[in-house]
């Protein structure tokens, strides 16, 4: 179980991208880089949760 919390903690740390404050470039397609980062973090969470649901979430005996 602990490894899943560690993964979540890493994702949370990446989410707080304080180093991107005051920045609006580079612009990729129609959004700045940091907005794409948020987009891909949410997609990644979906994938992580799907794997967790399969491997880490036990239906019984917990």
């Amino acid at each position: 179980m602990n490894k899943w919390w560690a993964v979540l903690a890493v994702m949370a740390l990446i989410s707080m991208d304080f180093w991107n404050w005051e920045k609006s470039e580079p612009f990729i397609f129609f959004l700045p880089y940091w907005a794409w980062q948020i987009f891909f973090i949410t997609i990644s969470l979906s994938i992580i949760f799907a794997i967790f649901a399969k491997q880490g979430w036990r239906d019984k005996n917990d």
Partner: peptide, 19 residues
């Protein structure tokens, strides 16, 4: 655009509360 960050991140992480 900061509105996307403050809404999307917290709400996505919130899904872990379903567990």
């Amino acid at each position: 655009l900061g509105q996307y960050g403050v809404m999307a991140l917290g709400t996505s992480f919130m899904a872990i509360m379903f567990y």
